[in-house]
């Protein structure tokens, strides 16, 4: 504040005493309403200061008279959401996936819950929406290595594949090439035959030779079945479609017969709760290929 206010020359009005390049500033008062709003804001701040967490100390902070804090509020909201879900979750807990599927409102809830759980737990390998990729089967198509019924899917989910769990699904295709059971050119013939099953064979003579090897008692036919239709209870995928987990080109088929790759799916029982596994089962079943 300037100690002495000067009067402006022409009208004799007070100035602030500030001068910039010969221009002096009139001491026009602030509008009343504006000043009152300022005072009200200061009063508001003081009240807020007392009611809510405000002053930090070195070891903590002043917690406010109301005792409010944002963590407690979040916890409360989460509890509230859980209470809201419980009317569905309680029913999901006691019913089988098949029963849930027949109740539209419950199914809708389960599909939404399954979608969220899928994104958290399954999508890293199987892709968003179960699109799958090489080595990780698509869950959206209609080819199921271990069966596509609700019960099949639920079992796979619970106990996994080659997961080490005692109830895990497990299959082991012999390594025909590295074990020496088949010679490289024989494996080539088998691959040609498999290609012919999908309608793509290039070498008819080779495919015919391959068909004979395929049909030998201890060879492919024992698991993959006649004409390569596959056996879901053994985990032997059909070979007569164009869907191949490790690739459908001749080179890829040869590689798989020579020294097969085997993927692992973890057991989710114990990691996810029962309701989540059921919701995931229904969600995966509804991705498009469920039987």
């Amino acid at each position: 504040m300037p100690t002495k206010t000067e009067k402006e020359l022409y009208q004799g009005k007070p100035t602030t005493g500030h001068e910039w390049d010969g221009i002096r500033e009139l001491d026009t008062p602030l509008p009343k309403w504006w000043v009152y709003v300022l005072y009200a804001s200061i009063a508001w701040a003081v009240v807020y200061f007392i009611l809510y967490p405000s002053v930090p100390w070195f070891t903590g902070y002043f917690k406010g008279v109301l005792g409010w804090n944002s963590r407690a509020e979040v916890a409360e909201k989460i509890d509230e959401a859980k209470r809201g879900q419980s009317r569905y979750l309680d029913r999901i807990k006691t019913q089988s996936a098949d029963e849930i599927r027949r109740e539209p409102d419950l199914l809708n809830f389960a599909l939404a819950g399954g979608k969220a759980a899928f994104a958290d737990n399954c999508a890293p390998c199987h892709g968003a929406g179960g699109a799958g990729t090489k080595g990780f089967p698509s869950l959206a198509d209609d080819l199921w290595i271990w069966g596509g019924k609700l019960a099949d899917i639920e079992q796979t989910l619970r106990f996994g594949i080659r997961s080490g769990h005692e109830k895990a699904r497990s299959s082991q295709m012999p390594a025909y090439g590295t074990d020496g059971a088949l010679k490289p050119d024989q494996i080539g013939d088998v691959a040609e035959y498999v290609l012919s099953l999908t309608g793509r064979s290039a070498d008819k003579a080779a495919a015919e030779r391959g068909a004979k090897i395929f049909a030998e008692e201890d060879k492919c036919i024992s698991c993959h079945g006649k004409d390569g239709v596959g056996k879901a209870d053994l985990g032997a995928p059909p070979l007569n479609t164009r869907i191949f987990l490790y690739g459908g080109s001749k080179a890829e088929i040869v590689r798989q017969v020579t020294k097969p790759q085997h993927g692992v799916m973890p057991a989710w029982a114990g990691r996810l709760d029962d309701e989540t596994i059921k919701m995931l089962t229904l969600y995966v079943h509804a991705l498009g290929g469920g039987k």
């Binding site: 892709g127 968003a128 929406g129 179960g130 699109a131 799958g132 698509s138 959206a140 198509d141 209609d142 080819l143 059909p238 479609t241 164009r242 869907i243 498009g288 290929g289």
Partner: peptide, 8 residues
């Protein structure tokens, strides 16, 4: 996701 699915 996926944009399309090839069936058996």
């Amino acid at each position: 996701n996926p944009l399309f699915v090839s069936l058996s």
